[in-house]
Amino acid sequence: MFGEKVIELLKESERSRETMDQYSDDKVRQIIDEMHVLYKLNMNDANATTENKSLWTTVQVRHSALERNKRCLLAYLYNRMNKIKTLRWEFGAILPPDIRELLSDSEYEWFSKYSTNLASYMRSLGQDLGYSGIDLTENLRPPKSLFIEVLCVTDYGKLELEDGDVVMLKKNSRHFLPTSECQTLIRQVE
């Protein structure tokens, strides 16, 4: 039965709605093969309809199946694209290697381009006012205070602040730091 492989693919991606999963190159190729087969069969039968009028019904069934497969594949790619967008905002411009592996080559290319576009947009912000851009990914929620108290969860090492001070971040040590300096560290759990 046609149109079943593609449902497996979508169910997999629906199950991991909140995380990125491996791009299943293999399944996508199988589905495209299935579509090629359907298309060829349809081509033959459509040419034969002049002698055998009853074939048009079969052609219509296969055509519906082709459209269905196309819709499902597009939906799969579109939903992954949205997740990749989220990756840029939550992980930052450089993806950890284990996440990078999950994307296909063209997806990674898309990610890089999106990243560049976003960066050049952020750089252009506020230029007419004399500022040199603003990092939009920094404050996704309105900041409440300039300084916050943080508790280190890992041995991070030295962190150099903007004013030149160097703080040693050791596990279980407490610090009082400028919010803007540690925002990204908290969001990305370095």
Partner: peptide, 18 residues
Amino acid sequence: GDCPLTTANMVANHRKRK
């Protein structure tokens, strides 16, 4: 009335899975 900073959603889920 205040909201502590938290790990981003996808990052947290990725770590859980790992």
